[in-house]
């Protein structure tokens, strides 16, 4: 209760002895809200709309977890975090789950003591240039001024790419997407670099998108995924399998349209196990039987979440590419529900 916290802060500043943490799942249930760390505004992934409601690809993951755990997709407190604050927010317990297009790297996993529970989007760093510049490959960018939208591991990849190709460049680091775009359009830099998905979103918002191209080179691997604190494996499992449930749902053809029908029971045992009409998957996770059904009901399966937020029919217009199911030649794969 916020008021109690407020007065607690004003009065005793937490002099009372504090009981040891009982695990994130219990905390979330007791609180009745999931605290989910998201970006401060990246169209398609996490951004508030005109009426202030958060939406986007990462946001849907948060809502799905909230639906699975609490039964209410709206029981999420979105905590906007910057590149600087996201890790502390998670480490200090301010958020239970960080779904902020964060690249899975060894040092973050090991040194910063986080657990990446999976990959919800396979991204890579790309370059966008004006067509008029006549550049068709990133290898021709020797001597260019590069606007970097600081974010995941952008600065490091860029330095590596130019060093390995023995090229020079002048970096201009910029905090927000809007300012990067302003600099780029004014010609203050020759090329804009960030994750390819971000480039697509930025380009889509231009006055003349056709005057700009995204170069074919992808200079880094950016597996983006939700992460939780190291050491609370039960909570990590819940987030991991919520994500897997969305992927499996696509693979098995469970959509938001036929969810209700399939929940009644089907001939396919795996569908039944996911939707809780067979087996005790939910119980193993410490949840109830239809947790996955609720998670899928939020925004549909992985394909539907992708299409509504960042797919080809949205202003961002990303194709599935690497993020197609493994059966379609992509990398999206879920371990079996068994």
């Amino acid at each position: 209760m916020n008021r109690t916290v407020f007065f607690g802060a004003l009065t005793v500043a937490g002099l009372a002895a504090v009981a040891a943490s009982a695990g994130t799942l219990d905390d979330v249930k007791a609180r009745g809200k999931l605290n989910c760390g998201v970006s401060t505004g990246l169209v398609g992934f996490a951004a508030p709309d005109a009426s202030g409601r958060w939406g986007g690809f990462d946001v849907t993951i948060c809502r799905a977890v909230a639906a699975a755990v609490l039964g209410d997709a709206e029981a999420v407190e979105f905590v906007p975090t910057t590149g600087k604050t996201r890790f502390t927010a998670l480490a200090s317990g301010e958020v239970d789950l960080l779904a902020r297009n964060t690249t899975w790297t060894l040092s973050r996993d090991v040194d910063l003591k986080f657990d990446f529970v999976g990959v919800n989007y396979y991204d890579g760093q790309g370059f966008m240039v004006p067509k008029a510049l006549g550049v068709s490959s990133a290898k021709e960018l020797d001597g260019a001024t590069v606007c970097i939208q600081t974010g995941t591991t952008t600065e490091l990849n860029l330095a590596d790419f130019f060093r390995s190709n023995n090229m020079s460049y002048e970096p201009v680091p910029i905090e927000t997407n809007a300012e990067a775009q302003q600099q780029y359009l004014a010609g203050a830099c020759d090329t804009l670099t960030t994750d390819a998905s971000g480039l697509a979103a930025t380009r889509a918002a231009f006055e003349n998108p056709d005057d700009h191209i995204v170069l074919p080179e992808i200079v880094s691997k950016e597996p983006l995924g939700p992460l939780v604190r190291h050491g609370d494996n039960e909570w990590g499992d819940i987030v991991r399998w919520t994500l897997n449930a969305l992927v499996s749902a696509e693979e098995l053809g469970i959509t938001s349209a036929n969810l209700a029908e399939l929940s009644g029971g089907t001939d396919n045992p795996e569908i039944n196990r996911i939707l809780g009409t067979e087996g005790n998957m939910g119980e193993m996770l410490g949840l109830d039987a239809d947790w996955a059904a609720r998670a899928i009901a939020v925004g549909g399966n992985y394909a539907e979440v992708f299409e509504t937020n960042i797919g080809e029919n949205t202003p961002i217009g990303l194709s599935r590419g690497l993020n197609a199911l493994w059966t379609d030649g992509g990398l999206i794969y879920s371990p079996p529900f068994r």
């Binding site: 505004g41 169209v43 997407n177 300012e179």
Partner: peptide
Amino acid sequence: MFDLVGMIRGPILASTEWNG
């Protein structure tokens, strides 16, 4: 934090409607 400047630099300029 989304104060006046934060609102501008964050949600408003990042939205597809008012980008620019």
